[in-house]
Design a protein around this nucleic acid. Structure first.
Ligand SMILES: [Mn+2]
Ligand SMILES: [Mn+2]
Ligand SMILES: [Zn+2]
Ligand SMILES: [Zn+2]
Lengths: 142, 142
DNA sequence: TATTTTATTGAGATTGAGTCTCAGAAAATA
DNA sequence: TATTTTCTGAGACTCAATCTCAATAAAATA
């Protein structure tokens, strides 16, 4: 709502208008800490009674990703997943190949080694993907 | 050709027949150490005069990936890439976001930390993806 | 080897996540 | 309010990948 509202700030920066649909998509993304796909966001909005189209959901998420309010994850199952970045530092993901549960991790040693590898090649690190596919504790005993 | 020919061994294990098309796809994959997509493999075969269909290229690569003769990479550009695993130990990838050049790296410290992270959660590591997107040395000065 | 059986192949249809189009709706501007 | 500009939504479209099924090739059998 305020002048520093991150959605409005992003829209201003992109020269885009503030709309109910864009607000609703952003609200829905912040409603959970899950890693949901576009269809789940779309259905959550529709089921809550809000009229919005898939096209607008995709378009709005693009803007949010571009402006660092949302992170896009590709876990290899054919549809991108999204998580909001409010109060969320960088982290990577650990995915159960059986039940699909997603956990998060950060490791300073790994981050440091990454930088070193890139530096030694004379390159400049832009972003990285680090995903650990596992069988989780629960799925092992099941 | 021999009894220990890895393609024939894989086909035997899967209960599949040995065919000219399957041999040709496997040969083409071993012809370079590049990270090519299915269309590039397909076109290389066609351009060399060998008649094969896209369907067979995709189907054969699936068998090779399943049997650890080929590694499948998803680098986020929408089409999977493949590399043969002959004389090739595990490694991860460093991709220039500008020119697309792919370099390989391995880091024992990272591999060890990965195992530790997974172990502490009581999970079992199946596979991992670690990709560093960079601007390479050449692209920085260009 | 010839015949029969079974798996493979290829051309093109299909799928599905994501993108695009464009007429109508909504917001900004005057 | 009237005019201009941007946004939205329904559905068409894209494209890598998968599927279909009649024709073909390999294996099994005689
Ligand atoms: Mn996360
Ligand atoms: Mn490689
Ligand atoms: Zn699990
Ligand atoms: Zn480069």
């Amino acid at each position: 709502m305020s002048f520093f509202d991150p959605l409005k700030k992003a829209l201003r920066k992109e020269g885009l208008r503030y709309t109910q649909q864009r607000q609703a998509v952003w609200d829905e993304l912040r409603a959970t800490d899950d890693h949901r796909d576009a269809e789940e966001i779309y259905l959550a909005l529709r089921n809550s009674g809000f009229k919005v189209s898939r096209a607008t959901v995709y378009r709005t998420i693009d803007v949010l990703v571009k402006n660092n309010l949302v992170r896009k994850l590709k876990l290899g199952d054919g549809h991108a997943r999204f998580e909001h970045k409010v109060d969320s530092a960088h982290h990577d993901h650990l995915i159960c190949a059986q039940c699909g549960k997603i956990e998060e991790f950060v490791d300073d040693v790994i981050e440091t080694r990454q930088n070193k590898i890139v530096e030694e090649l004379g390159s400049k690190l832009i972003r990285h993907i680090h995903q650990l596919f596992v069988i989780c504790k629960e799925c092992q005993t099941a």
